[in-house]
Each structure stands twice: as C-alpha cells, then as structure tokens.
Design a protein around this nucleic acid. Structure first.
Length: 513
RNA sequence: CGGGGAGUAGCGCAGCCUGGUAGCGCAUCUGCUUUGGGAGCAGAGGGCCGGAGGUUCGAAUCCUCUCUCCCCGACCA
C-alpha cells in the first residue's frame, strides 16, 4: 500500500460508477437539478464545454459551414414525415400541448383546457425535420448547393435511465445539416465531418478514437449510413463520442428538398447530419480522470495555470500578491496552442495547501504555489497535475525561478496535452485483442469476472436482416454490441466468427455506454 | 418502464424497528495558537428530516400517494 492520500474517496478500480459521480461533483462540474434526467452544469464544467465549443466551432467554420438557429419546438405534423425517424424517436419525446396555465382552485396551477394547442409541438430530439423544412424553401437550384448549416443547441430525449453528461434527458450539442447535389458529394461531406471529429477528439480532447461505420442495426433512424468515432473508457467500455450520417434522399423526400439540376430537371437533394454533444465531457472524465479527480487537457482547461499565493493575513501578503500578479502577467503574455495562456491568480484567503486540492480535483493542468520564501528567492513552487505525486507520497513540487517557470509553461502544457493522449492510446491498444477466432473464445474473453475486458476486433461476413438480428442477439447475451467497422482495420483473411463463412471485414465488439 | 436501494445542515452519515421538541464527522464563521505543504484548540452559526395527505394528545420515526437520485435489467442518438 502506498502512503498516498488521494483527493477522492472512491478508487476507479473499486467502483468505477461511484468514482465517476464523485469526479463530477468533486471537480465542481455539475449537479442534480431536481428535474428528472436534467443537470445543472456548473462554471468549471461549462467552461470545459465552452472550450470544446470554441475549438470545434473553429473546425466547423473552417469547412465553410455556417451557423444558424432553428426552433426548439417542432410541429407534430412536420416531425411525422419520415417513418424510420419517427419510429426511432417517438418513444422518448417531450410534447407541448397547452400554452397557458390557470388556477386549479386549490392554490396550484393546471394547463388551461381552453388553451389547448390545435397541433401539439414536440421538443426537438434532433432537428433533421425542421431544418429539412427550411432547406426545402432555401434550395431551388443546383446553384444553392451545397447548403452547409450547423446549429449549437439543446435537445431533449426522454431517456429511461440517465447519467450525468453520458445520457441526460436534455443535453447540449452541435448538429450539422447539409444538402448536396448528389450522393457522392453528400458522402464526401459525411466523411469530412467524421474526420473533423477524429481530429477534434484526438488533438483537442486528447481522446484516441476508432473511426468506422456503424452496422445496420445501430444506424441513426432514417439514415442510409451512420459513422462514428469510438473511444475506450478506463473501465474498458466503449463510448460513441461523435457520429456522422449520410441520409440519402430520405429526409429530402419527407421534406421535399428539390432543386432544378444543370439539365433543368427536378432532383432530390442528398443530405447529411452530424453531431457531437456534452457527452464528450463524460468521455473526458472517464478517459483522463484519476484517483485524485479530473485531469483536463490544457487545450480544454478553462484555466491552464492556477497561481496560489500562501497568504498569511499579515503585512507580507501585499508584496506576495504583487509578486504573484507580476507572475500572472508574465504567464498571460505567453502563448500555447496559438492562444494566450489562461492563468488564474486565486486570491481567496485561506491556506494555499488547502485550496490546492480544489484545483487538483478540478484538474487544472499546472498549479503554481508561491510563498514568502519563493518571493525572496525569486522562485515559485510548481506542480503538474499529470505528475502529481513525487517521492514519499507527497505532491511532486518543482522549484524553478519565476522566469524559468513562465518560459517553461507553453512547452509544459503541450507536453501534458500529448502525454494525456499517449497514456490513453497506450491503454487502449493494450486492451484491444485481435486474435479471437471463435464465438467461444469471445465468450471467454468477455467472461463476467473480467474486470477490464476491453475490446475485441473480430472478423465477420456482414450479415443483413434476420441473420444480423441473430448475431446481435448472440452478442447481447454477452452484453456486447458492435461498435463499428473500423476504417483502418486490416482486410479480412479468415472465417466469419458467427457463420463460419469467409469473412469480408473486421468489426469492433465491446461493452458500451 | 420492471426489480432492488436511498433521500435528515454545504458534503458524508447516525437516529426510524420500539412515536415524546434533531445529532455526529468534515466544511463554514469567530477568537487564540501555528506557519512551506491537505494545521491545532476553544466557541458559534446553519435543518419546517424530499413533497402531499393520513393515524395520533404528539410523527424524521407508523400508513398511503408522489417526486428525485443510485444499482441491475429492458430501451437507447
């Protein structure tokens, strides 16, 4: 046993679910709201989401996609138009039926029966239908295409079982919606968005992902093809971190998105949609968190450096704060990742040593503590969140001069960013097995007592219809799902794990969130 | 939505079985001491016990309903 006294009470290896919840609250990210499945996202958690928004939004705009905003409410008749879409979402819709409340005579309020809506409105679970409606008006000619739109919005899906950030009834996301002249162009856009998500996940979130196509049974309701990026959490489970769909002409047919082509005839547009949500914050926690709380990759940290003066409530505080303020200014003048460093001087009274653990739990990448002796020596005490523990179970402080510290920070933050990615990538590759060639071997690999089973990449022959259903059922008995067909996998060279027929491709099989 | 568990101070919990004016630890505030690594001592503040009904002289405690959270399952972009 180590002498380390961790900042959290739950250990990942003991109870991963309890640990996850402790991080969410101990890192001050979010809390329950009293409304089923809905959470309050607190400043530190929302600050991380805002960083995600900023970095992903830049990538979206770089691709020539424009932001717009569409209504929260969708007329029921509008939503009804695409059959598969309806079937996929109808079970989890919030519906608005009245527009006024009246007193119930017992001190409460009830919906006014006189104020019933002629047509109910549904709260968007996603916006294909209402954006399709707009597109049908905006698209008249081939010259109007491609139409590339995105919106940052909240959506509501009445989930039966919710978990903070991972599956909430209301969540925040961006949804891209594009319309194109033909299938090829739409497919190119589908893959562009997918690659954008991969780059965002790996470069900004430090989250290694596997890019691939979802099997038929996992497709978005109404899609022709669904693609995903899949990430491995520290308990070995998979999390879908972003998806991109080629919708064919399904939604164009439903919404009547037609245009006159170059030859003068009417054509249906081919559309795509792609989304990434606050679920990514959950992925961040379960990938980079440790037994002392969250570790935020510097690219996403609302504050990359936190300065903690050792205040004593005496005459020494003034000069010390002055020294820290100068340090803050010097650091803020530095750049990392092409942006000014985000640095906070935490002036709250109280011992630095006590406040330190707040910032450790929140996962600020670098903590700089400064005491009177540091000031006299022109130094600081620096602590990296990714190398928290030093010798003897004590925090691993370093003591550079103030100038050295400021100069070292940009490189240090870049190192932390890539270090977090490398750590996650190593863990993932260590936990993907590729040598399973029978269903029995698969069962054994995912036996109940295996705490961290990881993922299996196996070969199959891409069955469809009832044959696929049978495969899905067999996997379900092992609590497994097909995550995707990785685009980077080796070609098949053996037999299908399920049918014994010659395999056509490799799939990723895992337990999932 | 089915099975199980839980809601009492900011956080973690005891009290409930056997009804009698609400308690502990941490945190907070005040004072003194301490002062380079998650301080010590003393004192203080803070809760209509998730909510609504009911039983009772009296309900955190017993009964009914309801809301929310957690775990397992079903469902699931």
């Amino acid at each position: 046993m180590s002498a380390i006294r961790h900042a959290l009470t739950n250990r990942r290896e003991d109870d991963f679910a309890a640990w996850y919840q402790e991080v969410v609250s101990a890192a001050d990210m979010a809390e329950e709201s009293g409304v089923r499945g809905c959470m309050v996202i607190k400043p530190w958690g929302y600050g991380i989401w805002e960083r995600m928004q900023r970095l992903l939004d830049a990538r979206i705009k770089e691709a020539g996609v424009q932001n717009a905003y569409f209504p929260l409410f969708i007329p029921l008749s509008n939503f009804e138009r695409e059959a598969a879409h309806v079937e996929g979402f109808a079970k989890e819709m919030a519906v608005v039926t009245h527009h006024r409340l009246i007193a119930d005579g017992k001190g409460g309020l009830i919906p006014d029966p006189e104020a019933k809506l002629e047509e109910p409105l549904v709260v968007r679970p996603t916006s294909e239908t209402i954006i399709g409606d707009a597109m049908s008006r905006w698209v008249q000619s081939w010259r109007d295409l491609p139409l590339l739109l995105n919106q940052w919005a909240n959506v509501v899906r009445w989930e039966m079982r919710t978990r903070m950030f991972l599956r909430t009834a209301e969540f925040l996301w961006q949804e891209g919606h594009t319309a194109h002249e033909n299938a090829e162009n739409a497919r190119v856009e589908t893959m562009r968005a997918l690659e954008m998500y991969r780059a965002f996940a790996e470069e900004d979130v430090a989250l290694p992902v596997i890019v691939g196509e979802k099997p038929e049974n996992e497709r978005f309701p109404g899609a022709v093809e669904t693609w995903s990026i899949e990430a491995m959490m520290q308990d070995g489970k998979a999390l879908q971190a972003g998806t991109s769909h080629y919708l064919g002409t399904n939604f164009a047919t439903a919404a009547n998105i037609r245009f006159q082509d170059r030859e003068g005839s009417q054509q249906l547009a081919h559309t795509t949609s792609w989304g990434l949500s606050t679920r990514m914050v959950g992925a961040l926690i379960m990938t980079h968190g440790d037994d002392d709380g969250l570790r935020v990759p510097p690219q996403l940290a609302p504050q990359q450096v936190v300065i903690l003066p050792m205040l004593r409530g005496d005459d020494g505080d003034g000069p010390l704060l002055e020294y820290c303020e100068e340090l803050r200014g010097t650091i803020a003048g530095q750049q990392a990742f092409g942006e000014k460093l985000r640095v906070l001087l935490d002036r709250r009274s109280g011992k630095a040593a006590a406040k330190r653990w707040d910032w450790v739990r929140r996962g600020a990448p670098v903590i700089v503590e400064v005491g009177p002796r540091d000031r006299e020596a022109g130094k600081v005490s620096m602590l990296r969140r990714d190398r928290l523990w030093g010798e003897g179970g004590k925090p691993g402080f370093e003591a550079p001069t103030r100038e050295e510290a400021a100069q070292a920070l940009p490189g240090m933050l870049a190192e932390i960013q890539s270090g977090l990615f490398d750590e996650a990538a190593v863990r993932r590759s260590r936990n993907i097995t590729r040598d399973i060639d029978s269903f029995d071997a698969l069962s054994g690999f995912f036996a109940e007592d295996r705490r961290y089973p990881g993922w299996a990449e196996v070969q199959w022959c891409r069955p469809t219809g009832p044959a696929l259903d049978a495969v899905v059922e067999r996997l379900k008995a092992l609590k497994l799902t097909i995550r995707n067909v990785p685009v980077d996998a080796e070609p098949a060279d053996g037999a299908c794990l399920f049918s014994g027929a010659p395999a056509t491709e490799r799939i990723l099989v895992a337990r999932a969130y």
